[in-house]
């Protein structure tokens, strides 16, 4: 084997290749092999993974948008439902308040009426009692007074009672006095 370093002064045609072309082809094939074997797979994998990631993120974004829209629709629906329910409750409350107020007013009126009737009855009873007491006492007093005035005894019970009754009857005739007790006494 002869190896000789020299300068080629273009002795041959520089447009024609020499044995260097074989070395060049082998060098290219070596580069191609290395790139294909060790560079291409990880590069392709990274790009494919990135594309998958982008697709996944796009899908997730679409899904998130859809979920957001659904949530907003549910929120709006719930809000409308709550408003409807609140309106219903408010109306019911107003109706209840009106009903309760009416019931209380009726109850109060009934109570007032009852108390008033009881008072009237009580007053009537007291009046009747007083009338009875007065009737008993006033008869005696009137007789005594009359005896003093006329100077004689009214011994006759029948006469005396008739006099008292007549007096009381006259007393009942006084204007503005209730007739009930007097009438009862007068009729006897």
């Amino acid at each position: 084997m002869t190896v000789l370093a020299q300068e080629q002064e273009g002795g041959g045609n520089f447009l024609l290749p020499n044995l260097t072309i074989v070395i060049e082809v082998l060098a290219f094939l070596l580069i191609l092999y290395v790139l294909r074997r060790w560079v291409w797979p990880p590069l392709s994998k990274a790009m494919n993974d990135r594309q998958a990631m982008v697709r996944r993120q796009a899908a997730e974004s679409t899904e998130a948008t859809r979920r957001l829209r659904q949530a907003e629709e549910r929120f709006d629906s719930a809000l409308a439902e709550a408003r409807r329910e609140a309106a219903t409750i408010r109306d019911e409350a107003r109706a209840d308040a009106k009903r309760i107020r009416e019931e209380m007013r009726v109850a109060a009126d009934a109570e007032v009426e009852r108390i008033r009737q009881r008072g009237e009855e009580q007053l009537a009873r007291q009046r009747e009692q007083v009338t009875r007491q007065l009737r008993a006492e006033l008869g005696g007093l009137a007789v005594q007074l009359a005896e003093r005035i006329i100077g004689q005894s009214l011994a006759d019970d029948g006469l005396r009672r008739a006099t008292v009754d007549r007096f009381l009857a006259d007393l009942d005739q006084v204007p503005g006095e209730p007739r009930k007790a007097g009438a009862a006494g007068g009729a006897s």
Partner: peptide, 19 residues
């Protein structure tokens, strides 16, 4: 033009600078 630093291998010329 076309001047290269060459070596001769078994009678064939190799352009060393290109290689």
């Amino acid at each position: 033009i076309g001047k290269h630093w060459t070596v001769s291998l078994l009678g064939f010329t190799l352009n060393l600078d290109t290689i």
